[in-house]
């Protein structure tokens, strides 16, 4: 009797996971009605599995929350860095003005670490976008560009999600649209979406060079070293790329 019950107990997991044949289900369910001990054992088994599920879910939730907290901390630090970077040039301006008065201003112009600036704070500002002012007449698109230029990336993405841009406008500003979209993803640390979006800009598009550079920054930030190096190589192969020198420098550094 004990032996035959053990035979049924061994089937519990398959039964609960729906992996038992119809005949076996029928046999087990008949045994459950015949043997109260077996029914009790099934109840205990279900309770144990439920407790394990609850515990597993708690652990998974805790790990997600931890990662979100870390992400927020990083973003907060970035904002503080950005603020600090605004203060430093202001400070430098004041100091250099003073020094101009005494004839030493030139000495201070070399202090700013260009690489760091490029890596952390560079954004394609509206003035970067190549000559289509007259085309950007659509109010929505203009507003979005304004948000982007204000570095309100979350709001930019939010607006795009809630009020998608008309396809005709996307078509018209294809490169610009995907560049701003991709950079906003990058700035909000959604690296996977950023790369996917920036990749949409073809090599013959006017914004390709910038998209390529932001893919590099994105790969660097996401820790994808292979992609980072691969994309740097692409820039190196393009001598007229606006970050050709920096790419060379970074690749030799890494």
């Amino acid at each position: 009797m004990k032996e035959s019950l053990a035979k049924y107990i061994a089937l519990f997991d398959q039964y609960l996971d729906g992996n038992l044949s119809l005949d076996a289900i029928h046999g087990l369910e008949e045994a459950l009605t015949l043997y109260p001990n077996l029914a009790r054992a099934l109840e205990e088994h279900i309770d144990a599995r439920r407790a394990l599920r609850v515990e597993g879910e708690q652990q998974l939730k805790a790990s997600f929350k931890h990662r979100l907290e870390e992400r927020d901390k990083r973003r907060k630090n970035n904002i503080e860095q950005k603020k600090a970077s605004r203060v430093i040039p202001l400070y430098l301006k004041m100091v250099s003005s003073l020094l101009i008065l005494i004839g030493c201003a030139v000495f201070f112009t070399q202090i700013v670490n260009k690489d760091k600036e490029i890596e952390s704070f560079e954004d394609p500002s509206i003035s970067y976008f190549r000559g289509n002012d007259s085309d950007v007449a659509e109010d929505d698109w203009k507003e979005l560009l304004h948000l982007f230029s204000e570095k309100a990336y979350d709001e930019f993405l939010d607006r795009l999600a809630n009020h998608p841009i008309e396809s005709s406008i996307i078509k018209k500003h294809y490169g610009q649209y995907h560049l701003t979209h991709g950079v906003s993803y990058y700035r909000t640390e959604q690296y996977n979406l950023a790369d996917k979006t920036l990749q949409k800009i073809p090599s013959d598009n006017a914004y390709y060079d910038q998209a390529l550079w932001f893919r590099i920054l994105n790969a660097k930030a996401s820790g994808n070293q292979d992609l980072f190096k691969e994309l740097l190589q692409l820039v190196i192969k393009t001598p007229d790329h606006y970050h050709h020198k920096t790419a060379k420098k970074w690749l030799t550094k890494k």
Binding site: E57, L60, K61, A62, D72, D158, A161
Partner: peptide, 27 residues
């Protein structure tokens, strides 16, 4: 991740509340 900001704005949640809901919703 983009949904966090969206929900935070729409429902006027704190960042902590939105994060908590996000982790919970994924589970």
């Amino acid at each position: 991740l983009g949904y966090i900001h969206k929900a935070k704005k729409q429902l006027n949640l704190s960042l902590e509340q939105a994060n908590d809901a996000y982790a919970d919703a994924l589970v």
